[in-house]
Design a protein around this nucleic acid. Structure first.
Length: 275
DNA sequence: CGGCATGTTGCGCA
DNA sequence: TTGCGCAACATGCC
């Protein structure tokens, strides 16, 4: 579930379900999710409170309570939120439950997470992880000048740079892979070789298109999995643009699919003497 | 059974 | 002080 578009869809769900709702009961027993806080803090902070806002930055969600408390949710690799009737049986992979009343109706919102890489924290102050996030390319747009600087500074591969949450909050392996394919840039290119404004703009456009595409997909197939990816997960298959057999490499520990035929590799310059 | 997975973090080492 | 590579986390699914 977990890249920017999925989290944005989740934000919309939670906003619709919870803003204005009063918590009647809350529970989580999973110490992993709430580390380093105690799972008990969760119920204690929520019961009797109401939700005022649901914010998102990158892959993090923040639910603001009417007493100034905040609930942070990160979906990890397999996390998600679902709404069920109050008293409904425990949902498969359920890790937390929030029962609420809204407009005289009662229902329950459950956090599910098979692998439990997610986080769920009830705190009073913004998390350091939240404060460290860079601009969100969907909510904030992409500042080409700032992005170009981040590229110029980085010696890492461009794919690793755009997946750095301090550079772009919310870009994960799928969006980075798809966005670079759309931009026709080889993900192995080093950042400091991409000083051309046209390259930065191409990547920005590729990322925006990848985000828009996945958002549209999620809206269309609320439940089903329609992998309409251009290249992600398609190593060995023909490139949809030029039919070259798609390649796969590992960058920063993540599988990276790209096309050697139409994605240009930029090599770093030995010096910056040229004009 | 083996391999892979949309994410993050911590550790050892250069 | 960075930054890199990699194992680890916990579990499902193909």
């Amino acid at each position: 579930m977990p890249e920017l578009p999925d989290v944005e869809m989740t934000r919309c769900d939670l906003k619709r379900w919870l803003v204005g709702a009063i918590v009647t009961a809350a529970d989580t027993e999973d110490a992993r999710l709430s580390r380093p806080e105690s799972p008990r803090a969760f119920a204690h902070a929520l019961v009797g409170r109401s939700f005022e806002h649901v914010e998102r930055r990158g892959k993090w969600l923040r639910l603001d309570l009417d007493d100034g408390g905040k609930v942070f949710s990160h979906l990890g690799m397999t996390g998600g939120w679902v709404r069920v009737a109050v008293g409904a049986a425990v949902v498969r992979f359920e890790r937390a439950r929030i029962d609420v009343a809204l407009h005289g109706r009662a229902f329950s919102v459950r956090y599910v997470d098979a692998r439990r890489f997610g986080r769920l924290l009830a705190v009073r102050e913004d998390l350091a992880d939240w404060n460290a996030l860079g601009p969100d390319p969907f909510a904030d747009g992409i500042d080409i000048g700032r992005f170009s600087q981040a590229l110029a500074k980085g010696r890492r591969a461009v794919k690793e740079i755009i997946m750095d949450q301090r550079v772009f909050a919310g870009i994960g392996n799928i969006l980075a892979t798809e966005g670079l394919w759309t931009a026709r840039i080889d993900p192995r290119s080093s950042g400091n070789a991409l000083l051309l404004p046209t390259d930065a703009r191409a990547i920005a456009r590729g990322l925006r298109r990848a985000i828009a595409r996945e958002l549209a997909d999620r809206k269309r197939y609320t439940d089903g999995r329609a992998d309409s990816f251009f290249v992600y997960g398609r190593a060995g298959q023909p490139c949809p643009r030029c039919s070259t057999r798609l390649s796969s490499v590992v960058l920063g520990g993540r599988t990276t699919v790209f096309c050697r035929g139409c994605q240009v590799r930029r090599r770093p310059r030995a010096s910056q003497s040229d004009a």
